[in-house]
Simulated scan of single mutants.
Amino acid sequence: MSVESRGIPALGELCRRGIVAAPMAGGVSRPELAGAVSDAGGLGFLAAGYKTADGMYEEIKQLRALTAKPFGVNLFMPQPSADQATLDLYRQQLTSESAWYETPIDERSEERHPTDDGYEAKLALLVDDPVPVVSFTFGCPSRDELDALALAGTFTVVTVTTPEEAQAAEWAGADAVCVQGIEAGGHQGTHRDDPQTDGSSGLGLLSLVTQVRETVQLPVIAAGGLMRGAQIAAVRAAGADAAQLGTAFLACPESGAHVMHKQALKNPLFVRTELTRAFSGRPARGLVNRFMREHGPYAPSAYPEVHYMTVGLRKAAARVGDAQGMALWAGQGHRLARDLPAGRLVQVLHSEADSAWTEMALRRSTS
């Protein structure tokens, strides 16, 4: 059954310019950023990760006051608990950071830092008071959960990193998949974190989009290292229906990223990105700094426990102006970041993509 036949707007109606602002947790994807993107004809997103259900709802209310256009909310799927002995070993690894920043390492409790990220409460709220789009990261919801959102009139998107994950999302009843290539900044949205790997064996975006397009019949949103309109045109040519950009919006004035994070995107001190578990316990791409070099080799597969273990240290590093101790999430295209207002950036990207698409059409007609 198509989304239209269920009374749910199609992806093209929700995102008229084919540009999605990636949900970036940790305070980056503020209502101001999401609203500016949506007002410009893109699809703005709020990131509910690490927030309570009430905190998520407050941001939804703020965003509704800023725009009447469609927007999305992203949820993190619940994760299994990590082995305590493994966590204790990494805690010892971080004692030098605790001493350096004069900050205690956070003692996690299930009540304060649940591994399910308050998923059920957030989902219940979104079913009761629907938003246009809900996306999921770190797994795929059940058919019952996706059906409940569909009955509420919500378009659902599941983040995938392999054709097999895309197929599972299609079987579960998702309306679209967000296909995330290895180039993407922040966390890799794999449905399972293999502790035997560092996450670097993932597929590049163009190859992944092509494989997913040949595997499922769902609309495809392409994500991973996209910073220019020509790249958007390229993934559209490969079969994507829309493009999702995160790092491209990180430097915008509406972004809630720390000023040092924004400056680091083009700072010659930070020349490359890598995937690391150092900050959160799950593979995530960021600018290589001292913390990543010193602790990445020892970080366990233990998300979100490691995230909560290091959050105080990261905040302390930001307070004293030390970017070497912060999680500087960024995709491989970070050098191409532009500090334009978000709405203006959507317009520029759209114009660039149209020009690139026209050029490709001319080349095809003359070849």
Results as ranks from 00 to 15, higher is better:
P31Y: 06
A223T: 15
G7T: 06
V3S: 11
K122E: 13
T161E: 12
Q332V: 14
L89N: 12
Q324H: 15
A40R: 07
L349S: 00
A124G: 02
S200T: 15
R282H: 11
M260T: 04
R64W: 07
G7P: 05
D116L: 08
R338G: 00
V212I: 07
V212C: 10
A124T: 12
K122N: 13
D354I: 00
V127S: 03
M326E: 04
L149W: 07
E32Y: 03
A330W: 02
D128S: 15
A152M: 04
P114E: 05
V133F: 10
V320H: 04
S355L: 01
L287E: 07
T137D: 08
T273W: 03
G44I: 06
A222G: 06
Q79Y: 09
P78M: 10
L89F: 06
A361T: 02
M227W: 04
R282V: 04
F76R: 05
L226F: 07
A48C: 13
S109K: 01
G27F: 10
P80S: 02
G281S: 01
G44F: 04
E4T: 04
G185N: 10
Q93A: 15
P31Q: 06
Q196C: 09
Q211E: 15
C15R: 05
E120L: 08
D322E: 06
G333N: 08
I60Q: 10
Q79N: 13
R335E: 14
S135Y: 03
R236S: 14
A184I: 00
D54S: 14
G49L: 09
G312H: 12
R192D: 09
K69W: 00
T103S: 12
Q93C: 15
V28G: 01
E32T: 12
G49M: 08
V320R: 15
A152V: 06
Q347C: 02
P80I: 04
Q84S: 15
V306E: 01
L14W: 07
D117R: 09
R91E: 05
T156Y: 03
A65D: 14
V235G: 04
V20N: 05
T273Y: 05
L336R: 00
D354Y: 00
E59N: 14
H113E: 15
V3T: 13
K315V: 07
F279C: 08
A302N: 08
C178D: 08
L340C: 02
L275S: 03
N74A: 13
E145M: 07
E359W: 02
E110C: 09
P219Q: 02
L125V: 09
V320Q: 14
F138W: 12
P78F: 10
N267M: 08
L63K: 02
Q231T: 11
L218T: 10
S255W: 11
R338S: 00
P31L: 06
L250E: 11
R285C: 12
R30D: 04
A48F: 11
H113F: 15
G139F: 11
L87H: 01
C252L: 03
D322R: 07
V348C: 00
L149P: 05
L245K: 11
Y308I: 04
V311T: 15
V131F: 09
V131D: 07
T247S: 02
A356F: 00
A34T: 12
A65Q: 14
Q92V: 13
R290L: 12
T276Q: 03
D129R: 14
S98G: 05
H334N: 14
Y298D: 12
W100S: 07
L362C: 12
L340H: 06
T190Q: 13
A251L: 10
L46A: 05
D147T: 14
S355M: 00
D116W: 04
